[in-house]
Design a protein around this nucleic acid. Structure first.
Lengths: 209, 209
DNA sequence: ACATTTTTGTCAACGCCATTGACTCTATTT
DNA sequence: AAATAGAGTCAATGGCGTTGACAAAAATGT
């Protein structure tokens, strides 16, 4: 009656792989792990659903079954876990420096490949929407609430642009110069630029007069 | 002296499409025009070779025939024509402001869609290589040569990161706040941040002392 | 204990994609 | 006139994301 028992002997005794509905899904975790690794390493376009399925040891159709689409799986795995909002918690006078400091501590771990992957997928509408809201809620809004002086919203957005510019340069290319630069020097230098928008323009608007 | 039939009167004296080997290829120009429009509007992944071929009125195979591959066509059409090097020509004291000014004048024209398209294709190795060298040769090097003081190379790279951060925010999302901001205010504010890295750190390192 | 439902997993397709090889046709060159 | 070389066409190829029909096993109800 049965004509195929490809993966395991279904009629024998069920050796290792359990079938049906285990409480903690085994295949789902394997798919997520494989997707995280491959997306972070090669990006979304160079990573095929079949690649993920092969590395996870499952059928390609199962990937779509569980996650809906390749893009949905991408959004579920390539998320920036660290709360960017807490980066802007320090005192105002040294906010630029402490923000970069925190960012670099996290960056050393794992957010740079994720940032690169998200950037490479920014063309897809769903990814762009996710990045936009994450940027707005997790960086621009906390930043704006901490600023004083005129044009707080504009300045918060421009500070976010500065931060993303640095991440962009660190993420897209293994820039040998930036990478080789001692972290304190790089942080101090860029913090000076951030601070130019953090400080209330009225406090030292015209230094001479 | 030489006539080109890209946009002007191609039908003046050669109405019927010539076959064989015309000196100025008709289909090639149509493909380039269609590719420029579609790539700039929808990006590389959402634009298929078949779409380009349909809009140009040619066979899809002909597109590959002439340009080698979709990616090669992308790199031939999505080029930033304006020389970024001349942006940094102004006097040092107001370099940040004048650079942004020039950038915005060009931006109003057409470089923003191209920037967005390049960013969306940054995952592809050839595109990334092109962007990297263009950035290095056309922006970082001219900038570095104009700076004075310590860490000129590092500061030039960080200024480039700032500029790209602003372009990133302008390109990926139609940010309503940044778009609605009066250009002079936006330029003045961001120029202050640029100037923090342009100015020789030694000249006003300790403003109080 | 059995029957039903729900979820997991499998397999073979579908339609779209970029790209290719074989081919014709025409203008230029010899 | 013959040879050449590029322009254009057509059908096919292999890969892609995704889907539908189906089997199997666990969960659930009785």
């Amino acid at each position: 009656m049965q004509q195929h028992d490809t993966a395991g002997g279904a009629a024998d005794y069920v050796p290792a792989p359990r079938r049906g509905r285990p409480r903690s899904n085994h295949a789902q975790d394997a798919i997520k792990a494989a997707a995280s690794r491959l997306f972070a390493k090669n990006g979304i376009t160079s990573t095929s659903v079949r690649d993920i399925a092969t590395e996870a040891g499952v059928d390609p159709a199962l990937v779509i079954r569980h996650f809906g689409s390749k893009e949905a799986l991408f959004l579920q795995t390539m998320t920036i876990s660290t709360d960017l909002g807490r980066l802007v918690g320090g005192p105002l006078g040294t906010l630029g420096r402490t923000t970069l400091q925190h960012l670099f501590e996290d960056t050393q771990e794992s957010i740079l490949p994720i940032y690169r992957a998200l950037l490479g997928a920014i063309e897809r509408p769903d990814v762009r929407a996710y990045v936009e809201t994450a940027l707005e809620k997790q960086l621009i809004e906390p930043l704006r609430d901490r600023l004083a002086g005129p044009d707080r919203d504009l300045r918060a957005r421009l500070i976010a642009a500065q931060i993303n510019g640095l991440l962009l340069h660190l993420a897209v290319a293994p820039d040998p110069v930036l990478t080789a630069t001692p972290a304190p020097l790089l942080l101090d230098t860029y913090a000076r630029a951030l601070q130019a928008l953090i400080d209330d323009p009225r406090t030292h608007d015209a230094p001479g007069s």
